[in-house]
Amino acid sequence: MTVLKTGQHILQEIHTGFSQLPESGVDNLISQIRKARRVFCVGAGRSRIMLSAFCMRLNHLGIEAYVAGNIPCPPASAGDLVIAASGSGTTPSVVAILKRAKEAGAAVVMFTAAATPELRDTADTIIEIQAPNGLINKNSPESTQLMRTLFEQIVFIAEESIIAILSKGIPVEEIAKRHTNLE
């Protein structure tokens, strides 16, 4: 297969998976971001990278947002929102942070490809993405890509779509002022 055909196949996978995104969960997330005092993003590995990009954009919009585990990162409490991503739904570090956030009174939203019973008890909202959730996906009809790549791509596009919605009405000059001051 050529790079062009492989890329087209990947784009089709993303299109198919993204079209199955539960809109009610995403709409709920947008509503919660708008009313949250602060937003915390939690993930591990590549999911954390996707959420770090999202967190950066939230700050560009003037929303106080942190990546859990980074410095600075205050403790979450009531009125805060924790947004997490775990393809497997069982990443120990992510699940532990979500439990702590719930105990502190924060709202929890989770992107996952596997809504486990434990997650259903911990997250207020689960946005389940139709994508492989294992590290080894032999003969998966869902994706020709490695591991949880499709999940991560759909999370990223969902986040960018959320940013586009949240940015409506904010002058681009205002957003640009928050982009950087050292470049």
Rank of each mutant, 00 (worst) to 15 (best):
L4T: 07
Q8R: 09
I10F: 00
Q12H: 04
E13A: 08
E13H: 09
G17C: 09
S19V: 04
L21K: 02
E23P: 00
S24K: 13
D27G: 14
Q32K: 08
Q32N: 03
Q32S: 06
I33Q: 10
I33Y: 07
R34E: 15
R34W: 11
R38G: 06
V42T: 14
G43P: 12
G43W: 14
G45N: 15
R46E: 00
R46M: 01
L51T: 14
A53W: 01
C55H: 08
M56H: 02
L61Q: 12
N70K: 11
N70P: 02
I71K: 10
A78E: 15
V82S: 13
A85Q: 06
S88D: 09
S88P: 10
S88Y: 14
S88R: 14
P92F: 05
I97Q: 10
I97R: 06
K99S: 13
R100T: 13
A101D: 09
A101L: 10
K102W: 03
E103Y: 04
A104M: 13
G105R: 11
V109E: 11
M110C: 12
A114Q: 12
A115S: 15
P117A: 11
L119R: 08
R120D: 09
R120Q: 15
T122D: 02
A123Q: 06
D124I: 03
T125V: 10
I127W: 07
L135W: 04
N137A: 08
N137E: 12
K138N: 11
Q145E: 04
M147Q: 08
R148A: 06
R148T: 14
L150W: 05
Q153L: 03
I157L: 14
I157M: 01
I157N: 02
E159W: 00
G169N: 01
P171Q: 01
I175S: 03
I175A: 07
T180L: 03
N181H: 09
E183S: 13
E183C: 11
